[in-house]
Design a protein around this nucleic acid. Sequence first.
DNA 1: ACCATATGTAGGGAATTCCCTACCGGTCAA
DNA 2: TTGACCGGTAGGGAATTCCCTACATATGGT
Lengths: 111, 111
Amino acid sequence: MDTVDVFAALASPVRRELIHLLLDGAHSVNDLASHFEMRRPSVSEHLKVLRDAGLVSEQRSGRHRLYRLEAGPLMELSQWLSPYERFWRERLTGLRELVDEAGEDESEGRT
Amino acid sequence: MDTVDVFAALASPVRRELIHLLLDGAHSVNDLASHFEMRRPSVSEHLKVLRDAGLVSEQRSGRHRLYRLEAGPLMELSQWLSPYERFWRERLTGLRELVDEAGEDESEGRT
DNA sequence: ACCATATGTAGGGAATTCCCTACCGGTCAA
DNA sequence: TTGACCGGTAGGGAATTCCCTACATATGGT
């Protein structure tokens, strides 16, 4: 049972597209595979990586397996990102000051 | 000048550690390399990947090169993440309802 | 000029990734 | 049961990654 790092799992554009496709609900493997140029077994392998990273879960239903998005690892990613937020907030603050200087008519308050 | 995908750049634990080290300001390559087991040229190569991804910038200062964190790509990552936020917000809402239900039966208590 | 320091680059080798073609088992329908 | 369909797995090959040891280049100090 290899446990896969969520960053490594998201490093592939194919896998990012896969979880994007799952935003509107669960899909079968064939359904997902139809969105790619590559062969179905390759998509299957990408799904395995996503499973090992906890990013998707499968639910068997007849001969289909429905894959659905799992939020946990993405939430962890968001938490990982939080220490860096101040960096771009500072940048946005700088931009905002420029904007404010350019047009001092409008004022709005939101942080 | 290869332009590197920010997800691919962050796929390496070493590179994530590098940008983490840059949270408290700019550092030289030797300074950064001293935090790792690996040899300095390897750290240099990791820094090149981060540069190509726009995650760090370098500023030459004498014979040193100071690397500093650049927020842009991380902000894009945060934006990429936003469509998925509702997934874990739903989960947290569910958790909160559970907590609230449990809390109605008991008076407050902490160990 | 000479030498030490700071860092990038070349080239190579082991490991990993990513895609492929076969193939296998499970499920449904006739 | 037979056959069509769904989807995982095996094995292989090309490309990429990741680390290494040399080496190159540039700057500063003496």
